[in-house]
Write a protein that binds this DNA or RNA. Structure first.
Lengths: 151, 151
DNA sequence: CCTGCGGTTCAAGCTAAATTGAACCGAATT
DNA sequence: AATTCGGTTCAATTTAGCTTGAACCGCAGG
């Protein structure tokens, strides 16, 4: 159970969120909100926020119950590709965007610097090269993780 | 400068370490220990630990100075592949190893459980599949980031 | 309309991690 | 051999961010 709790920290996701996913993953049947915070012994607040994040990441889906009450039941996303691409979309992409702006500003600085040597410009350009490579590689990664692809 | 400080946090590397790398990256000439903690206005302790980590990651190299004093001068690693593989080796691999042990234990639990349905065993096997995929894909990533490869 | 239930929001507390600063170590210099 | 210098180590402090818990919202049922 804590297994997931620790794993997800790599991606900057709080442990409790990993635990929630772990609980759902370990459950043969979909669970509802109260199941989650009762069984994990965490606060309603954590459970709510955690579920929200998992929804944003596309890591859980609410499943239709037979019109019983208004409880929402959840089950985990089981496609590794979906999970990874969710993290990429919600955590990495925003950072990349922010980085882009900064990088643009850095370039301006380097250009208007007008210093004798082109050292700073070179470095900025290398940064841009790095960023470009990462941007091309990351999407490839998600396709590589696609299910049941042939050898 | 803080640019790097923020970026590295994704990988669970403390900001000060990123700043050190940033400083070296932005410097036309190699810098020594005292340059670093003076210019960044951080403690000697942070600088020392930070440099240690960067060394472990293979993100900086000490460069031979012309026999002047015993100061050690540093310059940044500029190969993206080296940087990424360093992070993989020092941060990801250990976690993967720890995960393996846990996974093995989980499997034992699932096997000896002897419960009627094979649900738990199925889930454990899926986890193993995920892990296997990640282990094959990550090395590929570093080669994809290799320098000046042809289109 | 009022009450209870499922769920969300948010300020405040708390835990874990990063940073500090001082004690310390070995090598070089005097 | 004593002192200074470059650098490391580690306990204590600070900071960041996760968790909590209470107030709150909308809806369903009475």
């Amino acid at each position: 159970m804590d297994f997931f709790g620790e794993i997800v920290q790599i991606f900057g996701v709080p442990p409790s969120v990993g635990q929630i996913f772990g609980l759902l993953y370990a459950s043969p049947v979909p669970l509802c909100f109260s199941d989650i915070f009762e069984q994990l012994d965490i606060s309603k607040g954590s459970a709510s926020q955690g579920l929200q994040l998992l929804r944003d990441l596309g890591a859980v889906h609410s499943v239709e119950n037979g019109g019983e009450g208004r409880r929402e039941y959840f089950e985990p996303e089981l496609s590794l590709r979906q999970l990874v691409s969710g993290v990429l979309r919600e955590r990495i992409a925003p950072m990349a965007a922010a980085g882009d702006e900064r990088l643009a500003r850095l370039r301006k600085l380097a250009e208007q610097d007008g210093s004798a040597d082109e050292f700073y410009l070179d470095r900025v350009e290398q940064l841009e090269t790095w960023r470009r490579r990462l941007k091309t590689v990351l999407p490839v990664l998600t396709t590589l993780l696609g299910p049941k692809r042939r050898k």
